[in-house]
């Protein structure tokens, strides 16, 4: 059997390439694939270099404007390219744009799309694994008909490994979408210092047990002191204490830091699925029976509003 052709859909990124793109290229290379990165907008030299460094052979740059929400226009362009070149597998990151493009592309190509994928293998078909029921079970799924397999992967599912190859850049005229474009008129950045949540080596997360939004400052302080990122359970995102971008779990981010500190979080399965992959987990909760302790390497049964200020003072005096 000749090598399968894999396309990785990569969002344009000012700093070259997202970690998700690196992870997807690496997995496709590991599967013995012939790998191309498909992107749009003004492709940076960093992205082309990065694609080659992780083992892609080509970057296919679609001339779709980054002034539009990419779902429909990128899907139309990729669908036309699929008709001409018949790739076997298309991997997309489970990001806002990745999920949009996957949905539009699925409808354009009349192909199913598998989402929330955390592992995959190839035999006659592509077999994908999905964590369900809060990550307590793993379901395997199969696309059982001929045609391109569309797969949306949760971040941090695969490890990025450098595997340098020569890479070419090809610019492609994009087929137009029949759908009226959605125009991006403004972009706003949340104020946030320190590493991005998805990339942070230490994540300190707060939950409803903090008792109120003021106490989240202790969580943010510990994150800063440890050079990490603050995060949250859905309970306090829904309560409006912190923005949605902080949410870890099934409907939020997946993180895989060296250390995850859960402060006043009960450990619902929908939260655990987003952070169980951390190397070390510390939990602070006043209820010794809280489910979070079943995944914690070190658990403190205590009041988060006593422990955190004391901890911050000690850490501050060490690092001062």
């Amino acid at each position: 059997m000749s090598a399968l052709t894999w396309w990785i859909i990569a969002e344009p990124n000012a700093s070259g390439m997202t970690n998700a793109t690196k992870e997807l290229i690496s997995e496709a290379v590991r599967q013995g694939g012939d790998v191309s990165v498909v992107t749009w907008g003004d492709t940076s030299a960093e992205l082309v270099d990065g694609a080659g460094r992780y083992g892609a052979r080509a970057v296919l740059q679609l001339d779709v404007s980054t002034g539009f929400v990419p779902g429909a226009p990128v899907a139309a362009a990729v669908a036309a390219l699929c008709a001409a070149r018949s790739p076997d597998v298309i991997l997309l990151p489970s990001s806002y744009d990745g999920r949009d493009i996957a949905g539009h592309l699925s409808a354009r190509l009349d192909r199913p799309v598998l989402t929330n994928v955390t592992a995959l293998s190839v035999d006659d078909d592509v077999v994908t694994q999905h964590q369900i029921f809060g990550g307590t079970k793993i379901a395997s799924a199969r696309i059982t008909s001929d045609g391109v397999a569309l797969i949306v992967v949760r971040p941090k599912s695969f490890t990025a490994v450098e595997e340098p190859r020569d890479v070419t850049l090809e610019r492609i005229d994009a087929a137009p979408s029949p759908v009226t474009p959605v125009v991006i008129t403004e972009s706003h950045l949340d104020e946030r210092t320190g590493p991005a949540l998805g990339d942070a080596d230490v994540v300190v997360a707060g939950g409803r047990g903090l008792g109120g939004v003021e106490a989240f400052a202790n969580v943010a302080t510990l994150a800063t002191l440890l050079g990490g990122a603050p995060a949250a359970s859905r309970a306090i995102v829904d309560a409006g204490w912190v923005p949605y971008a902080y949410q870890v779990g099934q409907t939020g981010q997946t993180v895989k830091p060296t250390l995850y500190v859960a402060c006043g979080i009960s450990g619902a399965t929908q939260h655990l699925v987003g952070m169980k992959g951390a190397q070390y987990i510390v939990a602070i909760n006043k209820d010794a029976a809280a489910p979070i302790f079943s995944v914690a390497d070190f658990g403190i049964v205590g009041d988060v509003n006593t422990v955190l200020p004391a901890l911050n003072a000690l850490v501050r005096s060490r690092t001062a």
Binding site: A141, T144, A296
Partner: peptide
């Protein structure tokens, strides 16, 4: 698209706890 099998996910072991 078909689900073909279902398995238990690997469980994490819990470690020490300390009552503050």
């Amino acid at each position: 698209q078909r689900v073909v099998s279902l398995d238990d996910a690997p469980q994490r072991q819990s470690g020490a706890t300390l009552v503050d």
